Amino acid sequence: MTDLANTSTKPTIVVSDIDYRRLTDLAAAAHDRFRDVAEELLAEMERARVVAAAAVPADVVRMGSAVEFRSDTGQQRRVTLVFPGEADITANKISVLTPIGAALIGLSTGQSITWIARDGRQHELTVLSVG
């Protein structure tokens, strides 16, 4: 997946203490089945600034957030970030245990991040809005 050794190029992210616990547990439980994405999600949690749920700014992507973003190809999408059991691509609900889902968690409006798709290609996305 992504080169996790160089987190200095990644934007600062904020995660609630509740999401931090749930996502850390999820990544640990999924490690054997989805190693690359689980490791990416764990790395994101390790570098996150963890705050009380009430202190997470409204423009930060958290679990259940509707997020509009633009990809490096110019495509704009609106998705809801969900746990794996709730994922439904036809309803624009993407799992946090996907490369793009792990990349989105904790970002705020205006931030961009580079992520690696399952096919090995590097992409960049920019968060346009969070609701």
Rank of each mutant, 00 (worst) to 15 (best):
N6C: 10
S8H: 11
S8M: 10
S8G: 06
T9A: 10
P11L: 05
P11D: 07
P11F: 06
T12S: 13
T12C: 04
V15D: 03
D17E: 15
D17L: 09
I18N: 05
I18A: 08
D19T: 08
D19C: 06
Y20E: 12
R22K: 11
L23E: 03
L23V: 09
T24D: 05
L26A: 03
L26G: 01
L26E: 03
L26P: 00
A27Y: 00
A28K: 13
A28M: 10
A29L: 06
A29C: 03
D32W: 02
D32T: 11
F34M: 11
R35C: 07
D36F: 04
V37M: 01
V37W: 00
V37P: 00
E39Y: 00
E40W: 03
L42V: 06
E44N: 13
M45Y: 00
R49L: 10
R49E: 14
V51L: 10
A52F: 06
A53M: 06
A53L: 07
A54E: 13
V56S: 06
A58G: 09
A58S: 14
A58H: 13
V60A: 09
V61W: 04
V61G: 04
V61C: 07
V61H: 05
V61M: 07
M63I: 15
S65C: 07
S65N: 07
S65H: 05
V67Y: 03
V67I: 15
F69M: 07
R70S: 13
S71R: 15
G74E: 10
Q76P: 01
R77M: 09
V79E: 03
V79R: 05
T80G: 02
T80Y: 00
L81E: 01
F83L: 15
P84E: 12
P84G: 11
G85I: 08
E86N: 03
A87D: 00
A87F: 01
D88T: 08
I89W: 07
I89E: 15
I89N: 13
A91P: 02
A91I: 08
N92C: 12
N92L: 12
I94S: 01
I94P: 00
V96E: 02
V96K: 01
L97S: 05
L97C: 05
T98Q: 01
P99C: 07
P99A: 06
I100V: 15
A102S: 01
A103P: 02
A103Q: 05
A103W: 03
L104Y: 03
L104H: 04
L104A: 04
G106A: 12
G106K: 09
L107M: 14
L107V: 12
S108K: 14
S108Q: 15
S108V: 05
T109P: 01
G110N: 09
Q111A: 04
